[in-house]
Amino acid sequence: MESSDLLYQEIILDHNRNPRNFGELSNATHKAVGHNPLCGDYIELYLIVKDNVIVDVKFSGVGCAISKSSASIMTTILKGKTIEEAKQIFNDFHTAITSEIDKKIDTQNLGKLEVFLGVREFPVRVKCVTLPWHTFIDAIEKNS
């Protein structure tokens, strides 16, 4: 596999072309804006949380393929999760993508997020992957 294919896997390109849950939620219970002024990535995240469960989530904004697909895949994962479950997923994910390249990763917990492991070869792009997740944490903590 060429290293470009390692980072830009088809599933990432697909989510970039057709982002899932793209849009806004007028009745959101939690909202946050994530912005990386250095590269121009910008995301608005909308959540509806009921009884500690994320029942709906949407995002909008502009960004590179990595941040956009990360946001898209994140929204598909968050739906139906409790806040604690969602935080744990990000925790595991963050540990995985910031680990050494040759370190063996337990991919069982990662699920769909495994496609982002290639980013470990591109340290400057890690922040593209994590921006939507940091925005999610921000939304939860700001409104709690």
Binding site: C39, V62, C64
Partner: peptide
């Protein structure tokens, strides 16, 4: 169209081409 400069920068880099992306 539809490709962020940072994706272009990373992919060109993998072909050995150093360019600058950003503001």
């Amino acid at each position: 169209d539809n490709i962020h400069p940072h994706d272009i920068g990373t992919l060109l880099d993998l072909d050995g081409i150093a360019i600058r992306t950003g503001h």
